[in-house]
Structure formats: C-alpha cells, structure tokens
Amino acid sequence: MKPVIAGTTMPILEIALDAGESIVAEGGDVAWLTPGLQLDTSTAHGTGGQGGFMSGLKRVLGGAQLFLTRYTAPSGGMVAFAAQLPGTIREVHIDAADTFMIQSGSYTASTTDVEVSVALQKKLGAGIFGGAGVVFQKLSGSGTAWVQLAGEITEYELKAGESLLIHPGHLAMFRAEMPLEFASIKGIKNKFFGDSLFLAELHGPGHVWLQSMNPAKLAAAIEPYLPDRSSDNSRP
C-alpha cells in the first residue's frame, strides 16, 4: 500500500493498493479510482473487525455513515479521495497505545483493522452548530487512518498539569487519553452565545491539533448568500 497526499489548499489522498490489499472509506467521498477494484458496502466496515449492525449505529452517532465501503484490489489498483474543505489531510498511525479523537466529519479512510466509533457528544445550546452540539469520533484498533483538518493547523504538546481552552469548532484532533471538559466562560458577548462563551478545556499530557477554519462558522457566513429555496418552492 502506497498513500500519497498531493496538493495544497484542497489536497487529494491517493492510495495505491497492491494485489489483495483493501481500505475502508465513506462511499460517497471517493473522487476517482482505477477499474477492477472490488467494492463492498456493509455496516461491518470501520469496526476494527468487531463487525455488526450496532457498531454501525455507533458510527452514525459520531457523524459517519451507517454503511462504509471496502475497496479491494484483486490485482492492484488505485483509489483517490478529495478534501471537502480547504485544509490538509493527515496520516495517523493507530495501535493500542495510540488512539485519537477527531471532530465529526474529519474521517476520510482507513485500513481495515481501524475502528471508527462515537466517543463524545455534547449539547452546547442553540447558538452553536445549529443546536446540534459537538461530536467527536474515536479512532482505535490497529492500522492507519487519514483525516481531513480544515484550514491551517497548529499543534501543541501539553505537559501534565497543563491545559488549554479551545473553541470546540477549532479542536480538530487530540489523543484519546486526554481529559476533555466543557465550560461556559462569562464576560464574552457575541451573536452566537449571548453573554457567555462555551469552550472546551483539554488537559495534558498529550498532543492536540487545532484547525484555523471552523466549518460551522463558515457555513453560517455563507448562508445569507444562498438562494432561498423555500420561496422557490412556493411559486406556482
């Protein structure tokens, strides 16, 4: 297996597969692929070999699809995935000592023994993310995963006893063993939160990846410029 991440602001993940090799991804995210690959869609994919419908439901709660697609190359081939937002695609190596939490929607693809599941959900009120709150997925098992991070990336290595307050939309990825709490910070007024701001407090030791682009704020910024579909539907 030979993965290549190419491009700049809108990167492409291209994975060359040797004969008999497979990867798993959300089916609708594929950009292009060579003929001859075998595609198999199932709830069992993305469960680290633990399979089953309930495992698929847990993945859905984390923002992924119920059915994931397994791409297998009987005699070799290639499959490519395109970033959905300006930013970067990172390769993450996972084993029993290295598990990661990623923001919902960041998962792109993985090798077959990686498990993608919901790990944290938090309602933060109607002012953030359209009232849906924040959801993080856990990458565990054994293998390699590729994740999409939005905008520019800043990394911090927090020592034991250190912590960082982060807007949830900018918290892209962190090591799963790091404690995470949410708190309402008084004294900041803005259009989303009134007189308080919800922030995530991440505690060390561990590594954290922060993204400069907040997808929810980006969606809110362009919403006023989108066509009003409700008015179109009301026309005779």
Rank of each mutant, 00 (worst) to 15 (best):
E162A: 12
S230C: 10
P86I: 12
L226P: 04
A183Y: 12
D18M: 11
F192K: 09
G20A: 11
E26P: 02
H45V: 03
E157W: 11
P86K: 10
K122Q: 14
T112D: 08
S230D: 13
L218A: 11
E91N: 13
D98G: 05
E177A: 15
S234V: 12
Q121V: 09
I166R: 01
K217W: 11
G143Q: 06
A220R: 08
T47G: 01
K122W: 07
L61E: 09
G87L: 01
L120Q: 07
L124G: 06
L202A: 04
V30C: 10
T144H: 08
I166N: 02
T144S: 05
L57V: 15
I188A: 13
G105C: 06
I102Y: 01
Q38H: 15
G20M: 06
S163D: 11
T154K: 13
F174L: 09
Q103R: 13
E115R: 09
G204R: 04
L149R: 02
E177T: 13
L202R: 01
P224Q: 06
T72M: 07
P205S: 03
A145M: 00
E26S: 00
Q50W: 08
S75D: 15
Q211D: 06
S196M: 14
T69N: 02
V208N: 00
D98C: 15
P236L: 12
T108Q: 02
A126H: 13
E157V: 14
Q65N: 14
A64S: 11
L85Y: 06
V116L: 10
A44R: 07
M78W: 09
D232Q: 13
R175Q: 14
I23A: 04
G46E: 00
A109T: 00
P227H: 07
A200R: 03
A160M: 14
A73N: 02
L57T: 12
S106P: 03
Y156L: 08
T144L: 07
G28T: 06
D95M: 13
A150S: 15
A97W: 04
R229W: 10
G51P: 09
L165Y: 07
Q137V: 03
I222H: 08
Q38N: 15
K123A: 08
A172W: 00
M78K: 11
D113Q: 10
G187C: 09
S22T: 05
G56F: 02
A119W: 01
N233A: 14
K191A: 14
G51F: 04
L66K: 13
A25R: 00
L226A: 15
A96M: 11
S196N: 15
V4M: 10
G125S: 10
H207V: 12
A172K: 00
M101F: 07
D232K: 12
Q211A: 04
I5M: 03
R229Y: 13
G48F: 00
L210C: 00
A19K: 12
S196I: 09
S117R: 01
I15N: 00
F67T: 06
F182Q: 04
V4A: 11
V60Q: 12
L149A: 02
L165T: 08
R235I: 15
S234T: 14
L68R: 00
E91W: 05
A31P: 05
S184L: 15
S196R: 10
G204P: 04
E157P: 13
P215Y: 04
M1H: 15
